[in-house]
């Protein structure tokens, strides 16, 4: 006979069934640690212009700088150590991705729950907003916003929130609509509980599983979108490059054989996004009741 499990234990056990997902999780943890401790483990602070020397620019991997520092992965066109650039770039990419997703989840969740719970005109207004937003490609909205606002990490996060919240609002609303008609909500309404309590204490927890899955996938999407925006030169400031900007800086040199400027940040971006997606995929399988064995 099967042992009784708490839901969390079940999720952990199911998650661990996939070797691929576990290795994804391991890589992701490593990346998170690197991003967190970047200032401690980086050979150079790539954002401090006084530490850079243009005379060290575009050195191949393994070269030594004028100050005796070894560029294990080479240096970029400003004499920035690519390895340090990747560490700091991961910090920005992950920070922007996670922060924008979290904010977008909170906004989307609130909007979606309100739309589902109150229905009627509230629902109509919110969902038409969502429809309009979803009818434009995300990159287009982000481009327009950043063109208006200018560069900056805060502004990039804002733009990413603006393009993402609608996904969550739509998902949460559809889940919540189903939950809304269930008896426990009716019971709560009959008890004359205040709407805020019903929405956040009863409706919300039951809408979370699909949201978690989408949010995890969206973190990867947000990182990719940030990289795209930075690659186009309108995301983060040029002196504080994220992975996308590092790739862009090296792109001009692709034809002239100086591959390392774009290549290594590109690999870092790829690994990050793949590991997040591996984790997200397994989470989806685990949290999806229809796939329960």
């Amino acid at each position: 006979m099967q042992r009784e499990q708490t839901p969390l234990q079940r999720i952990v056990a199911d998650f661990a069934e996939s070797r691929l997902a576990l290795s994804g999780l391991a890589v992701l943890t490593l990346i998170l640690l690197v991003a967190l401790f970047a200032p401690l483990i980086s050979p150079q602070n790539p954002y401090d212009l006084a530490q850079l020397d243009v005379l060290d620019s575009r050195l191949p991997p393994g070269s030594r700088s004028g100050d005796g520092l070894t560029f294990w992965l080479g240096s970029d066109d400003q004499g920035r150590d690519i390895l340090s650039g990747i560490f700091y770039g991961l910090r920005i990419s992950l920070g922007v991705g996670v922060a924008s997703t979290l904010c977008a989840v909170i906004i989307g969740l609130t909007m979606g729950l309100c739309a589902a719970y109150f229905g009627g005109r509230t629902d109509g207004v919110i969902m038409r907003f969502v429809d309009i937003q979803l009818s434009f490609p995300a990159i287009l909205i982000a481009l327009i916003l950043l063109a208006l606002l200018g560069q900056g990490i805060g502004k990039t996060i804002f733009a990413l929130i603006m393009v993402q919240w609608a996904y969550y609002a739509r998902t949460v609303r559809s889940t919540a609509l189903v939950e809304r008609r269930k008896e426990y909500i009716e019971a709560a309404v009959c008890l004359a509980l205040p709407p805020s309590r019903i929405v956040f204490r009863h409706l919300l927890p039951n809408c979370l599983p699909p949201l978690i899955v989408i949010a995890t996938v969206q973190v990867a999407a947000a990182i990719a979108l940030e990289a795209t925006l930075s690659y186009l030169g309108i995301g983060v400031p040029i002196t504080e490059p994220s992975l996308g900007l590092l790739i862009k800086n090296g792109f001009d040199y692709m034809l002239s054989g100086k591959y390392w400027i774009s290549f290594f940040p590109g690999i870092a971006l790829l690994v990050t996004i793949v590991s997040i997606n591996l984790v997200a995929d397994q989470l989806r399988d685990v949290l999806n009741p229809r796939l329960q064995k």
Partner: peptide
């Protein structure tokens, strides 16, 4: 900006189209 930073002028760079 690098060169100015070295003589003590802390320089940020902002670029745009």
């Amino acid at each position: 900006a690098q060169m100015l930073a070295r003589v003590g002028i802390q320089t940020k760079v902002e670029t745009m189209p």
